[in-house]
């Protein structure tokens, strides 16, 4: 029962048209959720969460730094998985997903590096230090930039999809390095405050707003990537009958929502 439902979902994923129609509601829901969560989380984190006993208010940068880094890595994992599926099953949608995830992943990695730097100045006493965590995150940024540049440089759609899928997949080895860098080596960066096995290394009034911000960043990423995928599908399928019908048949309000 579940297996056949999964199988039918898998086959439907092969159809850009089905994805386009299905994602319309998701974009709407995720967009509103992101707006509410980010607004609530930001006010909670800035105005109501208590200051840290050691770092004072500067620790609040965490409320942007942690979700930005988490979602940046998650988007890369998504690209790696999409690359794998694309290479084996030649599914059209996977390259659309990679193209749509790239810009946001790149921006969020840059944001994680920037907020980390601003946080490092008052706490570490340094804007930048070359340790395992900072370097592996910088490598993540270069991977994003590299795939982006590669896509711009290759004109053929098939070769472009294959090349970016290969790099996205190979670059996946960097993800565990980022994660475990603070455990494998002596680093300036502190180890994780949240682990699956142990309770958070901070009280609830500090991690609750962080949880809201993390959910806000994830829903925002979902909204942005789905929207970009829809746009990409429209561009790629521009000549087909269903796109022409959709463009001419819908009222302008729905068209705006789609883009």
């Amino acid at each position: 029962m579940i297996f056949s439902a999964l199988k039918s979902f898998w086959h439907k994923l092969g159809s850009p048209r089905w994805f386009f129609e299905m994602s319309q509601t998701w974009v709407f829901v995720l967009g509103w959720m992101a707006l509410l969560l980010l607004a609530a989380g930001f006010v909670w984190a800035i105005a109501f969460a208590p200051a840290d006993y050691q770092q004072g208010n500067s620790f609040r940068i965490m409320y942007v730094h942690v979700p930005a880094a988490m979602v940046a890595q998650s988007l890369y994992i998504g690209m790696g998985v999409a690359g794998f599926i694309g290479l084996v099953w030649r599914m059209k949608l996977t390259d659309v997903a990679i193209a749509a995830s790239l810009p946001l992943g790149m921006l969020l990695t840059a944001l994680a590096l920037f907020t980390g730097s601003v946080w490092g100045r008052p706490t570490w006493n340094s804007w930048w230090e070359w340790d395992g965590r900072t370097v592996s995150t910088l490598v993540l940024f270069f991977l994003y930039v590299g795939i982006y540049a590669l896509r711009e440089a290759i004109p053929g759609q098939v070769l472009r999809a294959r090349a970016s899928a290969v790099i996205a997949l190979v670059g996946m080895v960097n993800i565990p390095i980022i994660k475990f860098s603070v455990e494998w080596w002596h680093t300036l960066h502190q180890p994780a405050s949240f682990t699956i096995m142990e309770k958070p290394a901070m009280p609830v009034e500090m991690w609750a707003p962080l949880l809201v911000m993390v959910l806000g960043f994830y829903t925002f990423a979902g909204f942005t990537v789905l929207s970009a995928m829809r746009l990409e599908i429209l561009q790629r399928e521009a000549g087909t009958a269903w796109v022409s019908a959709w463009v001419s048949g819908q009222d302008p309000l729905d068209l705006k929502k789609g883009a």
């Binding site: 840290d52 006993y53 006493n125 230090e129 502190q190 180890p191 405050s193 290394a201 500090m206």
Partner: peptide, 11 residues
């Protein structure tokens, strides 16, 4: 350089 740990706590 100061290396702070992963624990956070209100004063």
């Amino acid at each position: 350089l100061a290396k702070h740990d992963e624990n956070y706590m209100p004063p």
